[in-house]
Design a protein around this nucleic acid. Sequence first.
DNA 1: CATTTCATGTAATGTGTTACATGATTAA
DNA 2: TTAATCATGTAACACATTACATGAAATG
Lengths: 204, 204
Amino acid sequence: MNTINTLGYAILSALGRKPCSGYELVHYLEVVRPVQHSQIYPMLTKMEQKELLVHEHVEQTGKPNKKIFSITEKGKGILEKWLAESPSDPINRDEFLIKVYSIWMVEEENSMKLVQGRISNLEKTMTNLSKNIAEIEQNKELDTMSKNFGRYILFNRKFRLAKEEKTWCQWVLGLIKNKNLNIPLLYVGMGKFSNLIEVVVLGI
Amino acid sequence: MNTINTLGYAILSALGRKPCSGYELVHYLEVVRPVQHSQIYPMLTKMEQKELLVHEHVEQTGKPNKKIFSITEKGKGILEKWLAESPSDPINRDEFLIKVYSIWMVEEENSMKLVQGRISNLEKTMTNLSKNIAEIEQNKELDTMSKNFGRYILFNRKFRLAKEEKTWCQWVLGLIKNKNLNIPLLYVGMGKFSNLIEVVVLGI
DNA sequence: CATTTCATGTAATGTGTTACATGATTAA
DNA sequence: TTAATCATGTAACACATTACATGAAATG
């Protein structure tokens, strides 16, 4: 058992960018791989035993003391090897989707509420993301070799996807209101309405 | 312990649409909540014990026999109650994102490969989804009360998101090639380039 | 006055994956 | 002939969440 799991690689990735405490890691990993503190602390210990990490103890006043973890050469080595392998398929778990699946059996009022709730969540997400993006953009030394490049493009990705999902939500709200699917129908980018859709997205 | 988890509700949702075998459920749940057969069979037994489901045994020739599960009134009741509650936050786990996080430490060639690999996965997904969408569209009785409505809009959502992610991938490839971020910069829909971006998306 | 932020840890429980087990039929 | 589809199940293990435990400082 000398292997580590995906969470382990996520930790190595974050520490490869800069040394962090477990507490900080929880925050930095949020964009990439959300994790609870109860999971990260035992993992850090385990990884230190495997000599992939080391820590130094930092005493603080007014705050609890902390451990700052850094990646070792051995850790960097296995991270680089892993980065070259092709990633496994993503896992998405989302109660909202399950509820949408059953939307046909829900009264119109509740369906609307469900989708509107999603929209307001997406809007909150987008507001937070634009703050993160703006923050990174203030540090002018931003190029593809910058340690912030990965985070930057990931925030961007999340923003785009949230925006697109919001558009989808609005399309669904329209369908629910009009009670038939004979107008917009497909968004497959290859059917008869494919270019019409682009116009709808832009609100023209 | 009289509660069921999200997977349980996913099963109820699928069976609310139509009675299925465990084997079929695995396929139907793919859009909403991917699950392995090793998890679904014990879950079905558990849910039948709670009287949320019932099954009938169907003998087959040339194929293994099967159990067709249906939702009970009790099951329908707790599903409807659950549908009215607001969904918990989604969980996304994606090794690709972790690798992107560390993209700054990878040589250009490998970064390109990583992103191009993602693009080809997305394209495969999109092809499959458009088949699913086309299939549903052939059954003409499609309105918001149709039992296929939920699946239909979910396929649509997945297609949109895949398409948007592909656009993002192409943006990233451009950044890697040009090695600086001074041209497109933000896609926050509120900065100086926000409308410029829409033009880029349309390829004008 | 209550909650959030800082900061680390363990224990119990719940959930998910991989591997084991079987086996006929059909399509590439 | 190799793999996929059909079809169901169990056992062992790996991974994740919730709850328990502590406690000062800052913010609303």
